[in-house]
Design a protein around this nucleic acid. Structure first.
Lengths: 164, 164
DNA sequence: CCATTTGTAACTATAATGGTTACAATTAGT
DNA sequence: ACTAATTGTAACCATTATAGTTACAAATGG
């Protein structure tokens, strides 16, 4: 259905920022983790900044930081930033207004579609970025497992792996 | 987000069949109500037939009919026929497997994404095509039906009207 | 035999997406 | 003041999904 990966990339990006625990990270560093171009990351971070979820600092030594604690950012917050269109699209052309079905269908569908999207968003609202982080750490092999690390250093990835 | 209108068109199409109450209708008739090309309708009806929701009859006098009662078809059934891809797409390229975040992100996201999609589908499952029909008739002034056959779903329609 | 209709392939136009390059503006360090 | 690093953003391209369109074979009923 949907081919946009922006939601996945946005969560990934914010997880990276959360793992850096206050230290600013560059779009280049995030892009390396996501495996894409830094401009793609900057575009998404730009949207997240408009929503006050992150802050940016231009110039040398600049980068990006979270503006809220991971507990205070829900997947719904993230979703709403990067996916603005409704989940279900209506007919591309307006249906035949001279037909009883055609004339009323979109109004009727809109209600049911909104209900379904709301149910989805309410499920997303129950998951915080902090929960995502816990799940990520839980996926790490026992030797490298860390719960809520104080100083996640992206450059220490190789060090972590060599501990296995 | 999603630009596919297949779900809306599929519901519209089945509503048209339901309104015809057993009399077969042609893809051309549905296309006129939806305001699109008959081939688009045939493609969607073809998928719905694979799911045993409709039956087709080739040749002169042929057309399409419902194979289940509107009470027995849910919006979720319809959705699952025409939208096979998961609601939320993952990264287009695999993330960096040498990064703790990148290595685990997709596995973690998959769980949360599935939960959200399930919540959406469970909401759709609570709505039947019969409910859609009632909502459509409700949008009409009493006695102004143009497409509805003489004997469509008498009980539910009258019940809805008498509630007003 | 003919008109109607499904079934399906092939092609096109449009739009969304993400990847890429380029470059101005900003900032810190020296 | 100069340089390097970084954001911010515009412009362009390639890929993909969608649905609209044409065309035509196969099936069917009268």
């Amino acid at each position: 259905m949907n081919t946009s990966s922006r939601f996945a990339v946005a969560v990934h990006t914010l997880a990276y920022l959360a793992a850096s625990d206050g230290q600013s990270v560059t779009s280049e560093m995030v892009a390396e983790s996501v495996n894409t171009n830094a401009v793609v990351i900057r575009r998404i971070l730009g949207s997240l900044r408009e929503a006050n979820l992150v802050a940016s600092q231009s110039g040398s030594g600049g980068g990006w930081t979270l503006r809220k604690k991971p507990e205070q950012i829900s997947l719904r917050d993230i979703y709403c930033v990067v996916e603005e269109e409704p989940l279900f699209a209506m007919h591309h052309r307006p249906p035949n207004q001279h037909c009883d079905i055609g004339r009323n269908m979109q109004r009727v569908l809109e209600g049911f579609f909104t209900d379904a999207q709301t149910a989805m968003e309410e499920r997303l609202a129950k998951v915080s970025l902090a929960q995502v982080m816990r799940a990520v750490w839980q996926e790490l092999p026992a030797g490298a497992r860390r719960v809520a690390p104080k100083n996640f250093n992206p450059q220490s990835v190789e060090r972590v792996r060599s501990r296995n």
